[in-house]
Write a protein that binds this DNA or RNA. Structure first.
Lengths: 124, 124
DNA sequence: TGAATGCTGAGCCATACGGCTAAGTTAGCG
DNA sequence: CGCTAACTTAGCCGTATGGCTCAGCATTCA
């Protein structure tokens, strides 16, 4: 998959409208930082922080090509969200079989990064 | 739907493990604050803030019964997430019709139609 | 009536977030 | 060689978040 994708990170990343917009844009294909930043009335360094978040949580990947940095969407990471959503729904219906079904079809390429740790002691 | 549900708020709320655990618990039925808080090694006021977030963004609803506050899950709000997710997928596939289909069915039946149709391979 | 239960409110604290500017650094181009 | 474009780094700033404690304030129950 990607870097260090956790539900915490992914949901956090996706909770910002700027970052969701970037994700939306990248859904149509790779783009450079400058290209992505253009629509936003924001200084580049600020924008870069958003990119940083998206990359750290594994929602996008970036590579440097000359002096330009190209960003691509890491679609697989989205299955984390779907998986969690599927889990919740299966809790509601009180069935577990549905979840397995769901996960099986959703993952396709085979990922397993479930983490529904009920409590945590602030690991970071 | 619920209170003041925005993608920002919902994703933000759901990005915290404590709150996800609460959501998971509430998926099995209503519960009091004390009941919900029990598994966590956290002062009540701190825990209440989490409840506050969940309620403000419309993911749960609460009512006071005597001196006890009962929380219930507001399942409808989850369709916001599904809708967004569906939007992204439809961007990837370059179609809009799918989105409408998806949203319609998600809202109707309310569950297990996390359409996972596997045309996520679109070479941009 | 008085004590215990179950939240609530007020306020403190450290860290993270999202924005900014100013000053690099590196790759391309004339 | 020198200039410009495209990031990148460093650092500042105000607000929000997530945790805490120490009261308070209703309900319930003996």
């Amino acid at each position: 998959m990607a870097q260090h994708s956790t539900l915490d990170g992914v949901f956090q990343a996706v909770s910002d409208p700027t970052r969701r917009a970037v994700i939306g844009r990248l859904g149509t294909g790779p783009a450079s930082i400058g290209e992505l930043a253009a629509p936003f009335d924001m200084a580049l360094p600020s924008f870069m922080k958003h990119i940083g978040h998206l990359e750290r949580c594994g929602l996008i990947r970036t590579r440097k090509s000359g002096r330009v940095r190209i960003c691509t969407l890491e679609r697989d990471t989205f299955t984390l969200i779907e998986k969690w959503l599927g889990e919740q729904r299966s809790i509601w219906t009180g069935r577990t079989d549905r979840l397995e079904e769901f996960v099986a079809s959703a993952l396709e390429t085979g990922h397993d990064n479930l983490e529904t740790d009920p409590d945590k002691e602030s690991p970071a």
